[in-house]
Design a protein around this nucleic acid. Structure first.
Length: 279
DNA sequence: AGTGCGGCCTGTCCGC
DNA sequence: TGCGGACAGGCCGCAC
């Protein structure tokens, strides 16, 4: 389940591999995903050069001269890069759930997504010219690692909001790229109960939460993300941040106070927290 | 406007 | 060993 650190890792790994290269050939499964390339898109891509590979929220942004190719990994999406000694045809036939294949001649980038919650789409730069504008265009909230996302900002954003803080953290229209794993981990590290109504966050708590969210995301990026079930890097390598999860998916006791961790559904998502450390 | 919920998907795991 | 059901959950569309 790629969140910000995983997508950042994918972008960082993919950029040097395909930057300045030209797409020679495109194949799609045409199976229904949240969105997929149209016939026009498919005809457009061949011959186009990759200018840049970045990340906005949980989107992988493959930048061409006139357009953005956006990949959202949903729950189970991943990229696989393969050298072209395997022809496209053989790669598609030997791997299941491939929905997009970008051929660059010397290598092939495959998008694989068993659950098809992901999306692949093309956006014209006629609207959003920069990735900042793209973020606005997509309705994506604050990049949590940007300087603009501060304690003061979070305090301001949460005034008059009654929802539980964990749901707020995971709302991409408010804060970009934070999903179940990093919301749970940041709240644990900040000592904040996931069910706390947003408006009850003090300035001090906002400050802790912003610091913990930033540090947990940065640490995860430095470790290549969390490798859980459906996520692995480009060539199948594992992100090692999974070893540093303190509450997400944990059944052991709290690493700080040894109390039993509690599991509950928050916004239809399983959440683990420490009832003693998180108040 | 803010909020909550259902639906989309299939591989994996667990209990019988 | 085989099978059914629970579970994983980001995002969108919709209703209130």
């Amino acid at each position: 389940m790629p969140e910000l650190p995983e997508v950042e890792t994918i972008a960082n790994n993919l950029a040097p591999l395909i930057q300045a290269k030209i797409i020679t050939n495109v194949w799609t499964s045409d199976l229904k995903m949240r969105s997929q390339l149209s016939e026009i898109d498919k005809q457009f891509l061949p011959g186009k050069r990759i200018h840049n590979v970045t990340r906005v929220g949980k989107y992988l942004v493959i930048e061409l001269l006139e357009k953005y190719l956006l990949v959202h990994f949903g729950m189970s999406g991943r990229l696989i890069v393969t050298q072209n000694e395997l022809s496209i045809k053989r790669a598609i036939h030997s791997l299941k759930h491939i929905h997009l294949c970008l051929n660059f001649g010397d290598l092939v980038v495959l998008y694989q997504d068993p659950r098809r919650f992901g999306s692949v789409r093309i956006i014209s730069k006629a609207g959003p010219k920069t990735t900042g504008e793209l973020s606005k265009f997509l309705g994506i909230g604050f990049e949590p690692l940007s300087a603009k996302f501060s304690a003061e900002e979070l305090f301001y954003m949460t005034r008059g909001i009654s929802r539980q803080i964990k749901i707020f953290l995971m709302d991409g229209k408010k804060i970009a790229g934070v999903g179940n794993i990093y919301a749970a981990e940041a709240l644990f590290r900040a000592g904040i109960r996931p069910t706390l109504p947003c408006f009850k966050l003090s300035v001090a708590k906002c400050s802790q939460l912003v610091a913990c969210l930033k540090s947990v995301l940065l640490k995860a990026i430095s470790k290549g993300g969390s490798s859980l079930r459906d996520f692995s890097g480009l060539s199948g390598e594992r992100g090692s941040f999974v070893d540093e999860h303190l509450v997400y998916g944990k059944k052991e006791n709290c690493v700080i106070c040894t109390a039993d961790l509690r599991r509950m559904d928050i916004g239809q998502r399983t959440t683990t927290f420490c009832p003693r450390c998180q108040r």
